[in-house]
Computed example of a mutant assay.
Amino acid sequence: MTPEELAAARDRVIPDVVAAGLRVLFCGINPGLLSAATGHHFARPGNRFWPVLHDSGFTPRQLRPAEQEELLAYGLGITNVVARATARADELSAEEYRAGGEVLRTKVARLRPAWLAVVGVTAYRVAFADRTARIGPQPGTLGETRVWVLPNPSGLNAHWSRQAMAEEYGRLRSAATEQSDAE
C-alpha cells in the first residue's frame, strides 16, 4: 500500500463478518487504515489477532485476514466498537466510543451471539461506562449474550505476549465450548 492509498482509507467503514447465533462475536476497537484499505479486519502484519485465534484453538490453522469469511464456519464473527477507520485508536473520542457501544448493543440484540469478546479493555470501559472492567469474563450481559474482555492484539500492546494472549483467548474458547455443549 502506498501512503496515498492508506490516507484515502481514513474514515472508511469495512463490513462486519457476522451471522445470527454465533458462538463468539469478536469486537475490535476500530479498523486501522490498512484494514480499511484492504477491507479485511486485523490486516496489519504486526497484529496478533489471527495467530492468537489459531494458537488458542479457535481455528484449526492460522487464517489470513483475506480469509476472514471462513470464521463464520467456526461460529465466529468480527465487528468493531467504532466503525470508522483511523491511523490510531487514540484518534477516537469518548463520544465515539459511547455511541459505538450503543450501536454494538443493538447489533448484539439482533444477532444474539453467545459471547461478545471485546478486544481492548480501555475501549470496553469507555464504550460501556464500566471503569472497573478487567480482562476476562464480565459480570453483566448484553441481553442473553455473555461478555468477555480480551487483551488488544495490536503489536503496540507490549504488556501481553502472544503466548499469554493465546492463553486468555483460550479461556474464552473453553467457556464458549462448554456453553455450546450445555445447550
Results as ranks from 00 to 15, higher is better:
121 V>R: 10
28 G>R: 07
171 R>T: 07
169 Y>W: 12
94 A>N: 07
25 L>E: 07
12 R>W: 08
146 R>S: 13
70 E>R: 13
85 A>P: 08
130 D>V: 02
170 G>H: 05
132 T>C: 09
105 R>Y: 05
148 W>Q: 04
74 Y>V: 02
110 R>P: 04
81 V>N: 00
144 E>P: 09
97 Y>P: 00
99 A>N: 06
53 L>R: 04
134 R>S: 13
12 R>V: 05
44 R>P: 00
36 A>I: 04
130 D>C: 06
32 G>N: 13
62 Q>W: 08
138 Q>T: 10
48 R>I: 03
49 F>N: 04
83 A>E: 15
24 V>L: 12
131 R>P: 10
32 G>L: 04
37 A>M: 02
162 R>F: 10
32 G>Y: 01
33 L>F: 00
102 E>P: 06
94 A>Y: 01
124 Y>H: 13
31 P>L: 02
181 D>G: 07
59 T>D: 11
82 V>Y: 00
105 R>A: 07
101 G>W: 01
73 A>F: 05
172 L>D: 05
144 E>R: 14
80 N>L: 06
183 E>Y: 05
39 G>C: 05
44 R>F: 12
151 P>M: 10
19 A>M: 09
54 H>I: 07
94 A>R: 08
40 H>R: 07
85 A>W: 07
114 A>G: 10
105 R>E: 08
163 Q>S: 14
48 R>L: 08
6 L>G: 11
10 R>N: 07
8 A>K: 12
163 Q>H: 14
75 G>T: 09
87 A>C: 03
79 T>W: 04
25 L>V: 04
22 L>M: 09
90 D>R: 08
59 T>E: 10
133 A>M: 04
139 P>M: 05
116 L>I: 11
112 R>Q: 15
54 H>N: 14
149 V>S: 03
152 N>A: 00
148 W>K: 00
30 N>W: 03
104 L>P: 01
103 V>S: 12
154 S>N: 09
76 L>W: 10
48 R>T: 02
85 A>C: 06
